[in-house]
């Protein structure tokens, strides 16, 4: 048994479990073996003083769901070894919230152009500082703060 830090629940009764960040991979593995076979999503929340990663798990046989949370300062273990679908969700969380996933096979931006500066869903992201994207000849995006040729 992996120790649980604390438990609570959402307003409609989905169990929320807090786990220490070192234990997240073994804990989720344990949960997967218990029958939580679907990873619905991974999301990140910026609480200004720390970041949180949320895993929504669903057991399709027992029809139960839990939310596993962990507090971090910007890095957690990747769970791509457990669920293939975690790949995109982790890339998205890295892209928008800026949480690094250790041992992720391909941790690149997914929604924004590669080379974008900053992570927009952080609360301190400067919304008024515009970035401009252009297309290089090899088909890759280029990003700069300078209006120049970009859009």
């Amino acid at each position: 048994m992996i120790p649980v830090e604390s438990e609570s629940s959402t307003k409609n009764g989905i169990k929320v479990i807090y786990v220490a960040k070192e234990n997240i991979l073994p804990f989720l593995k344990e949960k997967k073996e218990e029958g939580f076979d679907t990873l619905l999503m991974i999301s990140g929340v910026d609480y200004k003083d720390h970041l949180e990663v949320l895993y929504h798990l669903l057991s399709s046989k027992n029809n139960t769901r839990i939310i596993v949370k962990t507090k971090t300062d910007g890095e957690v273990d990747s769970v791509t070894s457990l669920w293939k679908g975690a790949d995109w969700h982790e890339r998205e969380t890295w892209d928008l919230v800026g949480i690094k996933f250790k041992n992720h096979p391909n941790l690149k931006r997914i929604l924004l152009a590669e080379g974008w500066v900053g992570h927009p869903l952080r609360k301190d992201y400067p919304m008024d500082k515009k970035q401009y994207v252009n297309l290089a000849d090899d088909g890759e995006d280029t990003v700069s703060f300078d209006r120049g040729e970009g859009y």
Partner: peptide
């Protein structure tokens, strides 16, 4: 909606 990532492609 024209996003920044799509705009250069629209131009092309």
């Amino acid at each position: 909606t024209v996003t920044k990532k799509m705009a250069p492609r629209i131009r092309r």
